[in-house]
Amino acid sequence: MIAEKPLTAAQRDDLRIISGMMIPESDEYAVPGADDAVIQGDIVATLGRDTRMVAAALDHLAKLAGKPLAELDEAWREAVVTEFRASGGVPAATLARVILQCYYRDDRVLRSLGLELRAPFPKGHVLPEGDWSLLDPVKARGGSLRRAP
């Protein structure tokens, strides 16, 4: 497999800023923003096959902004990101996805959502049986299969 070129420092800076705009830190829910260093580290370390798309998205973003996102005032930054989301196509969608997939596996975020910090296997989950008497009306109504000649 061809080794992917890592993101440049400038791309990583813009990635951090846009991640924080997507998901800001919240005291109310006791969660970090997606611009948190650990989450950013996870994103960059696991980009893998998405690297090229994400780099393309960040290049598009840089072109729209004309300079590093961090140097824009808030209103301009918002306008640039709105335009980016409207015109970014698959690369922009990939960028959003890689941010979300790392954010929603962070321990602090999962804890805040009341989810366990583990892989599904091998513990799994327990399902309540549910009320099977709900089927009684269906049984009472009955019915028959369409006849085939």
Partner: peptide, 14 residues
């Protein structure tokens, strides 16, 4: 299989 790892959902996209 993906469900053995914490990144189980991300694997779905790769």
């Amino acid at each position: 299989y993906p469900s053995t790892g914490r990144d189980w959902e991300a694997k779905f996209y790769g």
